[in-house]
């Protein structure tokens, strides 16, 4: 059956509408998990709140296991799913910059919009700053163009690099996630509850 758009089961014109609906659900879940608070997000860096890690690891594990089962059932063809190309150098530099911004501002791009939507002033300022950053980047693009295009590895996946089957990798990931959750649960008294 799927993916629906690459197989032209639904028209590519629906792309934006589907993105809009999925984005609304994403925002709802972000807000429901308390991600509209910068203190909750930065908590993972200071070691007093690991909600961010738990939510994202659960999301990754569920998506990974679900997609692999769906692929097996024939509901989706994973070989047709678009894999974002890997630009290693740019990713390292970009990840570093984003980490600093994340820590300083207390939001990531998605959560800043969720925060702005419920009227948090810091989130609104963060969003505006983000657009300023986009503007600066586009103006300075000729300077960073070589870095931007360096280290292109194409649509590489981690299972291709490690040479193991996707199922085995998913199993390892689930095990690691459950162990982490166990550790976090064991030390739950060490973390302080924060009011948002």
């Amino acid at each position: 059956m799927g993916p629906l758009i690459p197989q032209q089961i639904i028209d590519p014109a629906w792309n934006n509408l589907i993105g809009f609906l999925v984005g609304m659900c994403f925002g709802l879940i972000l807000e429901a998990s308390g991600f509209s608070s910068s203190r909750k997000i930065t908590g993972v860096f200071y070691g007093y709140d690991f909600t961010v890690m738990k939510v994202f690891m659960t999301a990754v594990a569920v998506a990974m296991v679900g997609l692999l089962y769906f692929n097996y059932f024939g509901w989706i063809d994973l070989s047709l799913v678009y894999v974002n190309p890997l630009f290693l150098n740019a990713t390292i530099v970009g990840g570093f910059i984003m980490g600093i911004g994340f820590l300083m501002g207390g939001f990531c791009p998605g959560t800043s919009f969720a925060g702005a939507a419920i009227g948090k002033i810091d989130a609104i300022v963060f969003s505006l700053g983000m657009f300023l950053g986009i503007l600066l980047f586009s103006e300075a693009f000729p300077l960073v163009e070589t870095l931007y295009n360096a280290g292109d590895y194409g649509g590489l996946t981690i299972t291709e690099v490690l040479g193991i089957s996707p199922g085995l990798f998913a199993f390892f990931f689930v095990c690691a996630m459950l162990m982490l959750f166990g550790i976090l649960y064991y030390f739950r008294d060490k973390f302080r509850k924060i009011e948002i």
Binding site: Y69, D77, G167
Partner: peptide
């Protein structure tokens, strides 16, 4: 957690995904 573990373990034993 146990069910999630079993689901993950099941993936290891699933045959290679068919080519759709």
């Amino acid at each position: 957690a146990l069910i999630m573990f079993l689901l993950g373990a099941g993936l290891v034993f699933l045959p290679q995904p068919r080519n759709n």
